[in-house]
């Protein structure tokens, strides 16, 4: 495992595009935090995002995990191109001739994905922890480290999404096609959702099994929850309680998708003549 990870790491380390994009990704990541702490002064309006309660523990885990997940698109480009460039440079062929098996090749790519996901998750944890410690109204250890399942959900979301990018890269062999396909899938899922909502409500359970939607289901949007937290003092009993928890079903579905994507990548590669 170490060997395969080092092989992938060596490729990424010496690839300028991958390096720059990853750098932008991690800078943007930290910049979001900075942005939130800026105090806006428009004449009479004195506004600071950080003072709106978004950085309160444990809500911050949920909020940051949700917001930062949008940045995964940057890394998606890196992952798609690190797979498809192996085709265009024909280095995949050379890797196999040099003695890497097709399984090892896919695994080394997967370890790369794992590396990116772990690094992103660690950064999310650290940035959120620091922001929380600065701005949170609550700082008891018990509260700080509650609701950490959102961090785990974020990690899983990245694994699922990146595995999908990996698969598209292997399937289509060109980064532009793979990214285009990703976009098409997004539109396609939207159409299915609309169709199910208005035409076939009995099929609604299907929606949760769509790959992109299932990843989205891992972390429910936190904005309406912010309102609830703020108004909780005045309105003790709300009539409708929305669940913001990370659902086990969503975890299982995303895990299955990740496995399906990686396994199909391997099978696809095995069947192909290069």
């Amino acid at each position: 495992m170490k060997r395969l990870f080092l092989i992938e790491f060596h490729k990424l380390k010496n690839n300028r595009a991958a390096k720059i994009l990853s750098l932008i990704y991690f800078i943007l990541f930290s910049a979001i935090a900075l942005f939130a702490s800026i105090r806006f002064n428009f004449g009479s309006i004195d506004f600071r995002l950080a003072d709106q309660g978004i950085f309160n523990f444990p809500y911050i885990w949920h909020f940051n995990a949700y917001i930062v997940a949008f940045l995964k698109l940057f890394l998606a480009v890196v992952i798609v191109s690190m797979v498809s460039s192996e085709y265009t440079n024909r280095t995949l062929k050379q890797n196999l001739i040099d003695g890497l098996s097709k399984k090892e090749f896919i695994l080394s790519k997967f370890y790369g994905v794992l590396g990116f996901a772990i690094a992103s998750t660690a950064l999310l944890f650290i940035v959120s922890l620091i922001l929380g410690l600065i701005f949170s109204d609550y700082d008891e250890v018990g509260i700080i480290f509650s609701d950490l399942e959102y961090i785990f959900a974020y990690f899983l979301k990245l694994i699922g999404f990146f595995s999908m990018c990996l698969f598209f890269g292997i399937l289509l062999r060109r980064s532009a096609f793979a990214l285009g396909f990703l976009f098409l899938l997004w539109i396609f899922e939207g159409i299915i959702q609309l169709f199910v909502k208005f035409q076939a409500e009995s099929l609604e359970f299907i929606i949760n099994f769509l790959p992109l939607q299932s990843m989205g289901n891992l972390i429910i949007e936190p904005f309406s929850r912010l309102g609830i937290i703020k108004s909780a003092a005045t309105q003790l009993n709300s009539e409708f309680e929305k669940s913001y928890d990370v659902e086990w079903s969503a975890i299982l579905i995303v895990l299955s998708w990740s496995f399906i994507f990686i396994f199909s990548s391997w099978k696809l590669l095995q069947k192909r003549d290069l």
Binding site: K11, N14, N15, N89, R90, T91, Q94, I97
Partner: peptide, 12 residues
């Protein structure tokens, strides 16, 4: 083994 054209990572 060398097959047809030399295949390496261009930016390395």
């Amino acid at each position: 083994a060398i097959i047809e054209s030399p295949n390496f990572y261009p930016s390395m």
